[in-house]
């Protein structure tokens, strides 16, 4: 009897976090579906999305441009330094482009956007909740999920791949800046090696598909944390931190899963 009780107690103690996680996941799924269901408001009133595109897309542009330029330059420098030992510095353009388009572009943009815009979205929605603005909206017969959450979600999902494409291009330009004018790699070789190696569907499109999923993940985490933040100053600050931490973990985990999918896909016989 006592052993049985002990076993039940142990299972119960082990089970509690599992049950909590399942409940959390279920609630998140329900919220995700309600956001999708409320998304018709964005089609009826595209102006709501345009406004959020400004706050998520345009205001993230500065950090994306500067980071991409430096990442590209560092890549160019490092790759040149390694490749020149094998006399293969001609392919520095190809290596920089592949690294950016496949991995660094999508992942770094996603991380930057989550800390620049994702946290802001969480804080904004959390504050609206803490100051009863969401409640007021509900009492004015305007559903907050349709008016506040859905436009931010879709603007972000749209902005992330665009910012990633800009990151890729600026990064490649940064690599070129170091390799060609600075280190003396031939301009024509730089581009022709890149063009020969980078495939549109396998590299460019796959990279953008990744960033699209990252966008969905980041923005969903941001609006979910904001909308369900504890309505106090402390609660909002905790939710903002959670957004950044969870986005980073989810982006990196998702990157592994998506990459594994994409690269298994093209080795096999059609």
């Amino acid at each position: 009897m006592t052993t049985l009780e002990r076993v039940v107690g142990l299972v119960g103690r082990l089970g509690a976090p599992v049950v909590d996680a399942a409940v959390g996941l279920g609630a998140a799924t329900r919220f995700f579906l309600s956001v999708l269901a409320a998304s018709t408001s964005c089609l009826r009133r595209p102006r709501l999305v345009v406004r959020e595109l400004y706050f998520i897309g345009v205001l993230s542009l500065a950090i994306i441009l500067v980071s991409a330029l430096f990442v590209g330059m560092v890549l160019g420098l490092q790759m040149y330094d390694t490749l020149v030992r094998f006399g293969s510095e001609d392919i520095v353009g190809m290596v920089v482009a592949l690294a950016l388009v496949r991995e660094l572009g999508p992942v770094l943009s996603a991380l930057l956007i989550s800390s620049r815009a994702g946290s802001a979205v969480t804080a904004e929605i959390g504050l609206m909740k803490a100051t009863e603005q969401l409640s007021a909206m509900e009492m004015m017969a305007v559903p907050p999920v349709a008016r506040v959450v859905a436009p931010r979600f879709w603007a972000g999902v749209l902005a992330v791949p665009l910012l990633t494409a800009i990151f890729d291009v600026v990064g490649i330009f940064g690599g070129w800046l170091v390799a060609v004018p600075l280190l003396g790699v031939d301009d024509g070789t730089f581009w022709s090696q890149m063009r020969a190696a980078v495939d549109f569907r396998l590299d460019v499109v796959n990279g953008l598909i990744k960033s699209l999923w990252f966008g969905v993940a980041i923005l969903f985490i941001a609006v979910h944390q904001g909308f369900h933040a504890e309505p106090t100053a402390e609660g909002v600050s905790r939710a903002t931190t959670r957004t950044v931490v969870r986005s980073a973990l989810v982006v990196l985990g998702l990157d592994f899963v998506l990459t594994a999918f994409m690269f298994r896909g093209f080795e096999g016989m059609g």
């Binding site: 504050l127 609206m128 009863e132 603005q133 409640s135 007021a136 009492m139 004015m140 017969a141 305007v142």
Partner: peptide, 29 residues
């Protein structure tokens, strides 16, 4: 609820809209 009005304890004005837009909010919606 469209036939009810509620005044919240802290006002709960929409901080990203002007006074004018706050009052116009329901009319536009």
């Amino acid at each position: 609820r469209r036939r009810m009005g509620m005044l919240f304890q802290m006002g709960a004005l929409f901080t990203d809209l002007t006074v004018y837009e706050n009052v116009a909010f329901q009319m536009r919606e």
